[in-house]
Design a protein around this nucleic acid. Structure first.
Length: 419
RNA sequence: GUGGGCGUAGCUCAGUUGGUUAGAGCGCCAGGUUGUGGUCCUGGAGGUCGCGGGUUCGAUCCCCGUCGCUCACCCCA
């Protein structure tokens, strides 16, 4: 759009949030903050951009995200920065910089930027909230983190979600497995689709989560990473599973689940939900022992975390339960006349200080005021005419039932409660 | 980066095999009700038919380009 008279729009792959979805955003963030607090996490806020090295070294220089999806720019001091494409690496960088006592448990909410073609559930600026725990490799912590995610999804009333888990092994046994996989693929290269002919040697793991139906029988026969874990990794995974079982958290083991970032080790998990088209993942996470060292930590600092796609979550809730976080006005004030309007301002202040959500009409016809009250979804409308003000008696109308009573100001508190 | 679909009122969409004043529903505003909403009735506002160019006597419709939206691949939240 180069035409000067064309109105501006939000950039490609970004969107404004207002109306019902914005109420859901607020509700989701508040709910997540509450559960993160209950699980002992503190809020961490890191810059929206970092030295590009934080991401190159963190998520892997060869990864798609680093090579072609980052918003990289040079500032006026010739420093090369990148808008954060994901949430974990910056938190790990902050951990290294400040050395908080471990285990350090932090949660965050942040936009993330990736230069990709937008589609359903995928944006150039999307928003994630998530947690990280640094300084321990205890499998019980893995399960604490998964349990928080699980509890959160229950709390917001999301049903029909599936928790998928896997183990990616560690640097040693995974490397051995990848070579084994590469050998298998090399021996059968003619059976691969064109697409995989290009990827198998570069990143053999990618072939595992291929979606082409015709390839499935062949891929099913490839060796499973779970059969090639070393003793320590096998024990770790077994421990994670038994902790999950003990807590009654349902999960599915998916040995072919491959996560996109290079730093994942051992435990990986994902929560998926139908109704998101091809992008069905609403949460992704895993353990990333070694990431801190990759970014520059002098001491080993194993870690685990997850991030939730806020935009995708809102999309699901919009379809399944759009009124979940609908804000409710407790009292709508409908003043008529000069004296009543001034009185309404004073009364609104008092009710708000008591915790009520109060909306008020300007001085206008009562019919019109009630129409507006109805649209705001107010539970009660308080009718204030000059006669009500002079006698100190209000008319309180219950908007759902239509029932209307007269009462004195002092009786108001006993009649209605904040939502 | 690649491929498919789509751009007509605030929203969801009709429509014209190219013809003069472009429609509906919802929403919005006003009236029917002098102080009573959610139902109903009546009326009204609101559109350079994404933008630019071409073909034509004539384009919202056909052609080309462009911008945008959308879905999928890739990748991922």
């Amino acid at each position: 759009m180069s035409d000067a008279v064309t109105p501006f729009q939000a950039p490609i792959g970004t969107h404004d949030v207002l109306g019902a979805p914005s109420a859901e955003w607020e509700g989701l963030i508040a709910t997540f903050a509450q559960y993160a607090y209950r699980f002992g996490f503190e809020l961490v806020i890191t810059p929206m951009f970092e030295d590009v090295g934080v991401f190159n070294r963190g998520i892997g220089e060869q990864s798609e995200m680093a090579t072609k999806e980052m918003y990289v720019f040079t500032d006026r001091g010739n420093r090369t920065h990148a808008l954060r494409p994901e949430g974990t690496a910056p938190v790990v960088r902050a951990f290294i910089q400040h050395s908080p006592t471990t285990p350090w448990k932090a949660w965050y909410f942040t936009p993330a930027f990736r230069y990709e073609r937008p589609q359903k559930g995928r944006y150039r600026q999307h928003h994630q909230f998530g947690v990280e725990v640094l300084g321990t490799d205890d499998p019980a912590v893995d399960v604490e983190v998964i349990a928080l995610a699980h509890r959160f999804y229950e709390a917001i009333g999301l049903t029909r979600f599936r928790l998928l888990i896997n183990s990616m092994g560690d640097a040693l046994c995974r490397a051995a497995y990848v070579e084994l996989l590469r050998a298998h693929l090399a021996a059968n290269v003619e059976r691969l689709t064109d697409e995989h002919k290009n990827t198998w040697s570069r990143n053999p793991l990618r072939v595992l989560d291929c979606k082409v139906p015709d390839d499935q029988p062949y891929i099913d026969k490839l060796p499973s990473i779970l059969d090639h874990l070393d003793d320590a990794c096998r024990e770790h995974f077994a421990s994670v599973r038994s902790h999950l079982d003990a807590r009654g958290i349902a999960y599915e083991v998916r040995p072919r689940m491959v996560r996109g970032l290079d730093y994942y080790m051992r435990t990986t998990f994902e929560i998926t939900h139908g109704g998101l088209g091809a992008q069905n993942s609403v949460l992704g996470g895993g353990r990333y022992d070694g990431l801190a060292e990759a970014i520059g930590s002098k001491v080993p600092a194993p870690g685990i975390g997850f991030s939730i796609g806020e935009d995708r979550l809102v999309m699901i809730l919009e379809e399944s339960n759009p009124d979940r976080f609908k804000p409710a006005v407790d009292v709508f004030l409908a003043p008529m006349g000069q004296a009543a309007e001034e009185h309404a301002g004073e009364l609104a202040a008092e009710l708000r200080s008591q915790g009520f959500s109060v909306e008020r009409s300007a001085d206008r016809k009562l019919k019109r005021a009630l129409e507006v009250a109805n649209k705001t979804g107010a539970r009660y409308t308080l009718i204030l005419g000059d006669d009500e003000v002079s006698t100190g008696t209000y008319s309180l109308k219950d908007m759902a039932s239509g029932e209307q009573v007269k009462l004195k100001r002092s009786e108001l508190g006993a009649r209605i409660k904040p939502n």
